[in-house]
Amino acid sequence: MKPSELLTRIVITVFNLGVVALSLALWAQTPLIHARIAEGGGWSPNVIQAKVGEPLHLKFTSDDVMHGFSVGQMEMQPVDIEPGKVSETTLTFTKPGIYTFFCTRWCGLNHWRMRGTVKVTGSETGTPEPVTPPLYVSLGLDLDKPHPVPFAPAGRPSAANGQKLAASLLNARFTTPDYYRSHAPAQLFDNLRSTGLSDSQRWDLVATVWQSNTTPAGLAEGKQLFAQNCAACHGEFGGGNGVFADDLAAAGTASMQTMNGDMAMSMQTPADFTNPQRMLGASPALLQGKILRGGMGTGMPMWGTIFTHEQIWNVIAYLYSFQFDYPK
């Protein structure tokens, strides 16, 4: 073999194998968190380890459609994860525990199944907060029991109209946050029977009380959370007719066939918050329970590890605005 032949062979082999080996090596050294739709496997990895006080640097990429990353109950800007691109964020946890991270951009019917956990270990920096059970537990509410009211207001109750009657006629007990959270609007309507007001005046008063338990900022946050997290199923205007409502109904029919008609475990059409019979019979505590726990197989996700209590109360306050007319 001539030297030129030998040299050429070496150059070709080294160069070509080098290109492949180098790219494989660089690829292996770049750990990415891959986001895929739930049907495609969801997050990979879906468990992330972290230490208290140590910055956690994360790099994401999406393998299919637009996704987002956020950690539940944590103040952070959600990270958009675009297909084929890499986005990064750095998180620092101050308390040990198990956190839930979740997808923030709707990526299909099973978007909400795209969740994972961050396991944060290390020593507590402050004193642990005492754990209190949520209100629906202490009230002993059955979340799955239907709660319809047999009557409904003739028109849309107006908080502004109720405001004019409020000063003289309200029992102080009805205006406390505790009363609001543990009673359905229909219960207050009942409790106002003795006032001698007309039905529509009493509903207006109910609206006033409900509004007094919100703030414009809280309603705005509730509205935003609803649009981002709820509207795809429950509809932009709460009518239970979001873009996935039909898919849920179809999935429900399918699951009923496979589960021998076990209704409790089947996907259902999303709740209609514009239905007065349904909404006026539900107390904030009951709604809080449904949001915290989820719908147990109905297709309603559990939000307990994602929203803070304040966020949930704001979403609930916004849900009642589908029933009541609040002045702007």
């Binding site: 951009r105 709707w106 978007h111 649009a227 981002q228 709820c230 509207a231 795809a232 199923c233 932009e236 979001g242 873009v243 996935f244």
Partner: peptide, 12 residues
């Protein structure tokens, strides 16, 4: 026209 818009499900 070079104009565009993006929408998430639920947020028209």
């Amino acid at each position: 026209y070079g104009v565009s818009v993006k929408a998430d499900p639920g947020q028209n």
